[in-house]
């Protein structure tokens, strides 16, 4: 991490959005006391990470990026164990476990060993575990990585519910839609640096009013033509076509663009006008797209036969 500084407000959902390797997990490791801060200072829930790590640990819950479940324990035992290491008394532990199993819809699975759960159930169990200690802040490192769309929606719902009940959420993700849907504020992070921190709406509005995507027979010629003739457009060309961000209403700008191309004899293949999304915002700020490259973290991990 390269000289970063940020503040998360109590009760909000704050996201770190960036590609793999941007430094998101490192930040979580630092804030959750798993790694030592080399330089600078971090205060989590009012406690200094370096000098008061035990108090920090008591105030937070963590859901790690990789699956961290003992496959030979049942759902209930997994939560029991977590409650025990945080020294929650037995009666209270039972009570919290029942509540949480209800919240994440795993009541019927309480006596099933974790190795028999689906990916989404495992994730929900991990989220429930992160909430066992009733933390002030819940850290979620890539909470929906490798999950199918329906399961993701369900997990987002749980995250919102948890936030509504007063828990501050610090989330890292490399999914645009996840950051957009969940966050109160987003920090775009790239190469260990925070590039911008804003609400999703402000981020999108900061780009301009509309995004026009066009694809022509000769994108190179079209780009230079538009660059020479339009002042109110920000233009970028990629393999998929040309992206124009307008300052005025997109549909009123479009006819003049079409005329321009027509006059130069450039064939227009397709046109699309829409509001800016976080994808464009991200490209705008970092100069590149997030490619959702397959990482081995998503794949099921091989587990050799246990023996002891």
């Amino acid at each position: 991490m390269d000289d970063i500084s940020f503040e998360v407000l109590q009760g909000e959902i704050f996201s770190f959005l960036g590609p793999n390797g941007a430094g998101k997990s490192t930040t979580i490791n630092l804030l959750t006391t798993l790694m030592k801060v080399q330089k600078g200072e971090a205060i989590v829930a009012g406690h200094n990470v370096a000098t008061d790590s035990r108090s920090v640990r008591r105030s937070i819950g963590i859901v790690f990026q990789n699956e961290v479940l003992d496959r030979d324990l049942t759902v209930r035992e997994t939560l029991e164990f977590h409650g025990m290491i945080y020294q929650i008394p037995r009666e209270k532990r039972r009570e919290i476990i029942e509540d949480l199993l209800e919240i994440v819809d795993l009541g019927s699975k309480r006596n099933v060993r974790t190795k028999y759960l689906s990916g989404g159930m495992k994730r929900r169990l991990e989220i429930a575990r992160g909430l066992m200690t009733r933390p002030k802040i819940l850290f979620l490192d890539e909470p929906t990585i490798g999950l199918d769309p329906q399961t993701r929606l369900k997990i987002w719902e749980h995250i919102r519910e948890i936030n509504d009940s007063g828990t501050t959420i610090f989330l890292t993700t490399h999914y645009m839609d996840e950051a957009d849907n969940l966050s109160d504020r987003i920090a775009i992070i790239d190469n260990g640096k925070i590039i911008v921190t804003e609400t999703p709406d402000n981020l999108k509005q900061s780009l301009g009013r509309d995004v026009i995507r066009i694809n022509t027979g000769d994108n190179r010629a079209a780009t230079s033509l538009l660059e020479n003739n339009s002042r109110d457009l920000s233009i970028s060309r990629s393999d998929d076509g040309i992206t124009l961000i307008t300052e005025k209403d997109g549909s009123s700008v479009l006819p003049s663009i079409l005329n321009l191309l027509n006059g130069a004899g450039i064939d227009l293949l397709n046109v699309d006008v829409k509001k800016p999304t976080l994808d464009e915002v991200f490209v705008h700020y970092t100069g590149r797209e997030i490619r959702d490259e397959p990482t081995d973290k998503v794949q099921p991990r091989p587990r050799p036969h246990r023996r002891r």
């Binding site: 798993l34 990789n66 023996r307």
Partner: peptide
């Protein structure tokens, strides 16, 4: 002690190390 290798390699130790224990 073999169980610790699993705990370490599969991240289970993180749960304990990140706790106040």
């Amino acid at each position: 002690g073999m169980t610790l290798i699993y705990d370490k390699n599969f991240g289970l130790m993180k749960e304990m190390i990140a706790s106040p224990m």
